[in-house]
Design a protein around this nucleic acid. Structure first.
Length: 243
DNA sequence: AAAAATGTCAACCGCAGTCGT
DNA sequence: GACGACTGCGGTTGACATTTT
């Protein structure tokens, strides 16, 4: 980061907004409408850059924002849409009038993401095991040694495989899809096995399900969205949050 | 009561897409 | 087509609040 919170850097103020700054921004939008955020500083004297102004307006000052807690109904929508779209928060936000992508993202992280925390907190040993497995599987893919038909015919979690095929038919590379899916299944299994015996079976099941859900989300992000890259699995294997 | 841990959320950053020149 | 400015998105950070020990 390198910037001092609440101070001025290169002429721009940073940190929490004051009531006066909010007022200036609201007046600007009243007069000029949303957009052209880089003009705000010039036209109002506000010492905030365009990005900061846009963010403040979109996430806090917009009059159509719904305040207060996420309702159970909204929560259900978030869950459903996240299962479908993954971390595409702005897409999810479009189905929740008055809620911002930032709000939904924060909500998800604080209410649901923590369910997977235990998985990430596992010992270095299990991380190393997973890392080795991923490396191995990646090497297998590189060497074209994965027989797609063979893998698809494996008995493990056939329903999940079927669901994946329905939900994400346009993935970039079916071989990668299957290979990664199995690495996640293996990951999930090994994590469960390494759990302390005090964990109930239900806890383990839910943690694994949440983990798979994360997998779905990440999978979408790395395959069907614009940012997809052919070597998405390599990216994934080197992403710390993933093991 | 105090310290530590955890939760919450506003705001930042970098990246990528779009648009105008 | 190349380039720069602008915009939007998702991930992350840090300050503050709340809960737990």
């Amino acid at each position: 980061m390198g910037s001092s919170w609440g101070f001025i850097e290169e002429g721009w103020r940073k940190g929490p907004w004051t009531a006066d700054e909010d007022r200036l921004l609201i007046e600007y939008v009243k007069l000029h409408g949303e957009g052209r955020w880089n003009s705000v500083a010039r036209l109002t004297g506000l010492r905030r850059n365009g990005k900061s102004c846009r963010l403040r307006w979109v996430n806090y000052l917009r009059p159509d924002l719904k305040r207060g807690q996420i309702t159970p109904h909204e929560e259900r929508i978030i869950l459903e849409l996240h299962a479908r779209w993954g971390n595409r928060w702005s897409t999810i936000a479009q189905s929740l009038p008055g809620r911002t992508d930032n709000e939904i993202k924060n909500y998800w992280r604080t209410h649901f993401k923590k369910k997977t925390k235990n998985l990430y907190d596992n010992s270095e040993k299990s991380r190393a095991r997973l890392w080795k497995r991923q490396q191995f599987q990646q090497q297998q893919r590189i060497n074209n040694q994965v027989d797609i038909k063979k893998v698809m015919s494996l008995p493990t979690m056939p329903q999940a495989k079927e669901e994946m095929a329905i939900l994400y038919p346009n993935t970039i590379d079916q071989q990668d899809q299957v290979g990664f899916f199995y690495s996640m299944v293996n990951n999930s299994t090994s994590m469960s096995q390494s759990k302390p015996s005090s964990s109930s079976n239900e806890d383990i099941m839910w943690d694994d399900l949440w983990n798979l859900d994360d997998f779905y989300g990440y999978f979408i992000n790395t395959t069907t969205c614009n940012k997809a890259t052919p070597n998405c699995l390599q990216t994934m294997a080197t992403t710390p949050a993933f093991y």
